[in-house]
């Protein structure tokens, strides 16, 4: 039995070794090479120069804004969904667009937001001059939020759906107004869903690069964009790897920060 279960682990170990450990090893290796392939730590020193630190901070800032708006929109939506009669159908309708390729949806927004697009047509109808919406911070955040909403809704919806409805009655019964009920019972009981939602939004938002190019016209530089540029434009694989190392570190930090605590046991 023991042997059998060990052999079952082989594909798993192979997978982890080839697609997780090896790439991380490679990234670490490259991050310690300069442009001429010599071993050095200069990339790490460069990362802590003001240019890269500012970029990291901007990247963080955008990811934060995107996550914030995604949460603000997704939580009430998920809540309303759990109250509808055919909640799983409505949830499905929200999830389905997320199956469509990200790039396609991004291109669609170029059309929608463009100078001759429907949004500007409406602006003109009200007698204003058409303005360029593309290549602004607004359009970048808008499209990113649009893309992340389904991923935020699903875990929050599941958490709300799992909650025992009589807990809400109990809170009301004990004198809590609807707002207090939300603050003291509903939100604390769905915090795990919110945390997973933040995980699947914030981490990918840090490394967004396609949307930054297509929608924000490279005005917004995130960690993802920076890595892409170092590899493909500057051909500085060492620097690109160094940024990737920090991106990985940040991911681990966020995973730790939003880690689910086990309820119940007296730890």
């Amino acid at each position: 039995m023991k042997f059998k279960s060990k052999s079952a682990f082989v594909p798993y170990i192979l997978w982890i070794a080839l697609f997780v450990i090896a790439p991380i090893g490679l990234i670490l290796y490259y991050s310690m090479l300069d442009l001429n392939g010599e071993f050095t730590l200069v990339n790490y020193r460069n990362f802590f120069s003001s240019a890269y630190l500012t970029m990291t901070l901007t990247s963080f800032w955008y990811a934060l804004i995107i996550t914030f708006f995604t949460l603000i929109i997704s939580y009430p939506t998920a809540y309303l969904l759990t109250k509808t009669k055919h909640k799983h159908l409505w949830l499905m309708l929200i999830i389905i667009p997320s199956w469509i390729n990200l790039l396609l949806k991004t291109y669609a927004f170029i059309g929608i937001f463009g100078l001759y697009g429907p949004v500007n047509a409406i602006v003109e109808m009200f007698g204003f001059d058409p303005t360029q919406i593309l290549f602004t911070d607004f359009s970048f955040v808008f499209v990113a939020v649009y893309i992340f909403i389904p991923f935020m809704i699903i875990p929050i919806f599941n958490a709300l759906d799992k909650m025992n409805p009589s807990l809400i009655y109990a809170a009301r019964d004990l004198g809590a107004s609807p707002l207090t009920t939300f603050r003291r019972v509903i939100f604390p009981l769905t915090i795990e869903g919110v945390k997973s939602g933040i995980q699947v939004t914030f981490i990918p938002a840090l490394s967004l690069f396609m949307i930054t190019r297509l929608i924000a016209g490279n005005k917004v530089i995130t960690l993802g964009t920076a890595i892409e540029q170092q590899f493909l434009v500057a051909q500085n694989w060492g620097m690109g790897s160094t940024i990737a190392v920090f991106l990985i570190l940040i991911m681990f930090a966020i995973m730790r920060f939003t880690r689910t605590k086990k309820k119940g046991g007296r730890a």
Partner: peptide
């Protein structure tokens, strides 16, 4: 509304707050 009534309930499933 329920929260303004001088009435309290013991629920069938107790409805104790798990958090």
């Amino acid at each position: 509304p329920a929260n303004d009534r001088q009435v309290n309930t013991v629920f069938q499933d107790y409805a104790l707050f798990p958090h």
